[in-house]
Write a protein that binds this DNA or RNA. Structure first.
Length: 224
DNA sequence: AAGAATGTTATGTA
DNA sequence: CTACATAACATTCT
């Protein structure tokens, strides 16, 4: 990559693609614990699993512990993109494609939301919180949602994901209700149900169980 | 210091 | 073909 020109950076779901002059693509997926860390130049000695280090005259950054950090061809990128579902943040997203998938499925909506080939970009925090925001029970089959609910789901995800990009952190709670800007909200104030103990609507204890191989959080009274 | 975690993929089963 | 449980992978944090 030394001396190359970065032409553009593309996000598709949780995948990042850095397009370099000369048809090389750097593919990055942060996975569970990947992290970008900024430094001033010159950067300190690498700490932990540094897979990529970029050094400029003023600034530098490391990429620590990503699930993927590899150079590939555009065709490889296309293969990855082809197995992803619609990404609510992308201009080319077609919600009807996602709706078609969900309306035909007997699988729980909580499981569908984690399936990156249905909707790309939603993770374990967003799936719990978006379902709580819409008062939809995670075990409801995709089939049981109506179009209005799906539209709300799509819209709310768009809003939540955009907020995440803007503030570089997950903020699913309503800042107006909390009375703070998203940037100033404390960790516990930012989320709706994920890892919470009681429901902020009704006060009932939040339930958590395994759904789709991960822990989901929901209010059994509010979410039906 | 064992275990959970803001995740994905491969594999086996039904 | 779909659905889905499970394991494997790999790093960080508590």
């Amino acid at each position: 990559m030394n001396g190359g020109v970065l032409e553009r950076v593309e996000a598709y779901g949780k995948h990042l693609f850095y397009w370099w002059e000369g048809s090389l693509v750097l593919h990055v997926h942060l996975g569970l614990y990947g992290r970008f860390q900024n430094h001033r130049s010159p950067p300190p000695d690498p700490r932990g699993a540094v897979r990529l280090r970029v050094i400029g005259s003023q600034h530098a950054f490391d990429l620590n512990g990503p699930a993927a950090c590899e150079v590939m061809q555009p065709a490889d990128r296309d293969r990855i993109a082809a197995r992803l579902g619609q990404d609510p943040l992308r201009k080319d997203a077609d919600p009807d494609v996602a709706w078609d998938r969900i309306r035909r499925s007997r699988t729980a909506i909580g499981t569908l939301l984690l399936n990156q080939s249905v909707i790309a970009g939603v993770g374990n925090v967003f799936r719990s919180d978006v379902l709580h925001a819409l008062k939809i029970h995670p075990e409801r089959p995709g089939q049981s949602l109506d179009r209005t609910q799906f539209d709300q789901l799509w819209q709310t995800l768009q809003r939540m994901l955009r907020t995440g990009v803007k503030y570089n952190r997950i903020v699913t709670a309503d800042p107006v209700e909390v009375g703070k800007t998203p940037g100033r909200m404390r960790r516990e104030e930012r989320l709706l149900v994920y890892k919470k103990h009681s429901c902020h609507n009704c006060g009932q204890a939040i339930d958590s169980w395994k759904l789709g191989a991960r822990t989901i959080y929901a209010c059994q009274r509010c979410q039906t």
